[in-house]
Design a protein around this nucleic acid. Structure first.
Lengths: 255, 255
DNA sequence: AGGCCGAACCAATTTGCAACTGGTTCGGTG
DNA sequence: CACCGAACCAGTTGCAAATTGGTTCGGCCT
């Protein structure tokens, strides 16, 4: 009886009954099955026996179940991964920077190709705002607004949505402390200059220059982040405590 | 009095009063202002006058407002763009394919570097399932599950989240018809072969081959999409009606 | 003892409703 | 004419109730 294949239905009446329903394509062609309580009553068996049969079908990949939702036909759909809280727990700042280095230079290049004069005025205004902020919190807000404005100007709605997802993770409170330290001191002025260089390239419609300027900017941001993460704090605190475990470098194109 | 600068408060008592509050950094250092009704009562003016003053402040970028939420200091945050319905209305299949061509080859390469034997078994099982489906709906489901499994194996949580966003848009009902046509006929068998080639490269840990195989697969999918979109239907229907206006080719790296 | 059923409870999700917010219109007042 | 008060519309949030799968328990039958 130690048969490795769980298919024989001989030992289970409910399983055969369920398979018949599934193959029959019932349920109004919807993917959702009735609730376990209803289904058990329909077949005329107990809920415990029904669940044992459903476990088999789920293991075979014919159905998938989720607490609070129901039981459905077909392969299990992806979990909703856009929750910023969950996601910012699973990823880490270096992953984020690698993806930003992949996305934002392309956005800057597209922005250079499509920016109107009004767009450029708006970017300059945001750059001024960013530079004029005195507190770290204000800098973060306006810096984010500037980078997003560039993404808007690029005119690719899907890339903009991807940027927004990354940006929301970036602004998560967990990493605020880390980024404030990476942004502190003389680095801030360099960032301001780099912002202006990106916008200047966009204003002159030099796509490649804009792409390169953005890449240099983000590489400096990443380098600052790396230094903060790997070097100990002057007062002795351990910076690693704020960083999830997965810190390996994952280049996207370095075949 | 056609002064271009909207700053003079002389004509408006409420505006000066509001500016004083904003500069004073009140409101418990929170970004949220009291509701219009409360704020109007505090200042001692009517709601209509208050709103006129708030319009000026909003145009200057000092505050932003949203119905149902409230009035806040600082730059306007990005609208939540992860709603699949809104997003699939704004983007188009070609934008999606361009981004997929940017993301998924990288995922295949990473998957080749990190796949365990169990992962590879799972990918093969999904490929078999995809190939065995007889109806278009089933093919779509299992094809999506296969591509996502590769993204899972890649092990970069942020890229996985980005893939999921794209995939949810891809599965939107609006484009179902279009993709079914692009997938029809002999093309289906080629897709099956390409899937197996990608998985074979992953199984042999050949990162570059996996990346290239995935790129070729997606390029063929995009070409099929292009043909369907640009050529008229045999029965005379206009395929353009299902496609938003923004159909220009937006390469991400073709400087 | 083992298998099954009914019932109850837990936990995650969806749904519906009430409260609140900005957006708008209307009539009244000085 | 500018302003106010009030009412209503529309979008958002928060919370409680209902629903669902996940789990445990006691009782019944073979």
């Amino acid at each position: 009886m130690a048969h490795p294949d769980p298919l024989p239905d001989s030992s289970n009446f409910a399983l055969g009954r369920l398979r018949a329903l599934l193959e029959g394509g019932s349920f109004d062609k919807e993917q959702r099955l009735p609730s376990e309580r209803v289904l058990a009553a329909q077949i005329g068996i107990g809920r415990r026996a029904l669940r044992r049969a459903l476990e088999v079908l789920e293991a075979e990949g014919r159905i998938w179940r989720h607490q609070g939702k129901g039981t459905f036909l077909g392969p299990r759909p992806p979990e909703h991964p856009s929750d910023v809280e969950d996601l910012s727990r699973r990823t880490n700042p270096l992953e984020v920077m690698d993806v930003r280095l992949e996305i934002e230079p392309a956005l800057a290049r597209l922005a250079a190709l499509r920016a109107s004069n009004g767009d450029i005025e708006r970017l300059l205004h945001l750059a001024d705002k960013t530079a004029s902020m005195s507190d770290a919190d204000g800098r973060e807000l306006w810096d984010s607004a500037l980078h997003r404005a560039i993404a808007e100007v690029a005119g690719n709605s899907l890339l903009l949505a991807i940027f927004d997802m990354i940006d929301r993770i970036r602004q998560d409170a967990t990493w605020r402390l880390l980024r404030e330290r990476a942004r502190s001191g003389a680095r801030q002025q360099v960032y301001v200059d780099q912002h202006r260089r990106v916008i200047a390239a966009i204003a002159q419609r030099e796509a490649h220059a804009a792409e390169q300027a953005m890449r240099e900017h983000l590489e400096l941001v990443r380098d600052g982040l790396l230094k903060v993460m790997t070097s100990p704090l002057p007062d002795g605190k351990d910076p690693q405590q704020a960083i999830p475990e997965n810190t390996e470098d994952q280049r996207l194109h370095g075949t």
